[in-house]
Amino acid sequence: MNRTQKQSRFAIACLKAVAGFVVLILAFLIGYIFITGLPNVSWHFLTSPAKAFNAGGGIWIQLFNSFYLLVLAMIISLPIALGAAIYLNEYATDNWFTAAIKTSIEILSSLPSVVVGLFGFLLFVVQFNYGFSILSGALTLTIFNLPLLTRNIEDSLANVSDDQRQGGLGLGLSKYETIIHIVVPASLPGIISGIILCSGRVFGEAAALIYTAGQSAPALNFMDWNPFNIDSPLSPLRPAETLAVHIWKINSEGIMPDLTQVSSGSAAVLVLAILIFNLSARFVGRKVFERMTSVK
């Protein structure tokens, strides 16, 4: 074996080691989070409210807030992202206007989430006077979510064969009808995967929320589902610390005695939720596709 071949062998061995190292990092991260965290996760932990000064607090309200904010943000951002994606993929022609729009979406997607959060703070919390609230948080998360969701939907639309559009147009349907009733349903598996993936990202986001949804989770009255009452879980104007914000908050200034247990437990729940989002994104999309192509 000559020198260059030896060199090649050695380099490739190094590459394998590097790749292995990256897998190890992830294994360590996931392992650490679950091994230290899951023992602290109990039914009681998931279903009882947090305690600021004593041990034995849970994360129920934070968990609820996270999901509530996620759902609201998705409801607001989905029609906007869908509309934007439709225009970009179906109508936009190659001109300066399209280029400007694409650039602004790129800018938005690479903006630090803390900047988005500060903008939300300025506009929703201060200017619109919504205060630290679910509403401010959901609107800010919408801004955070829009670029990625738009791109995901755009990609799914682009994957639909042009034959489908031709089919609709050939029947005398308008382009828009064709898009809404034929192209979008045909791209549903991709769109759903995209929504779930984005949900995972939104669910774990904290920096955009600390100055919009706030850092406190006041007690909620789970018997009262009237959104106009301030201690109703559905009230859009109450402050709502999410699970991700909770982890940051207690690690920065928490003083409860079981701080480590609570934060490792919270982190485990958060990562578990994200893992579920990630795995189901593949699974659900495929299932939807199977349903669409087979017997109803």
Binding site: G167, G170, T293
Partner: peptide
């Protein structure tokens, strides 16, 4: 144009059924 296409129908090269029943 939509009324035109309704009256002058078209069938395409590749079968393109919609993702519907």
């Amino acid at each position: 144009v939509y009324e035109v296409r309704r009256r002058i129908g078209m069938v395409f090269q590749r079968p393109n059924p919609f993702a519907k029943s």
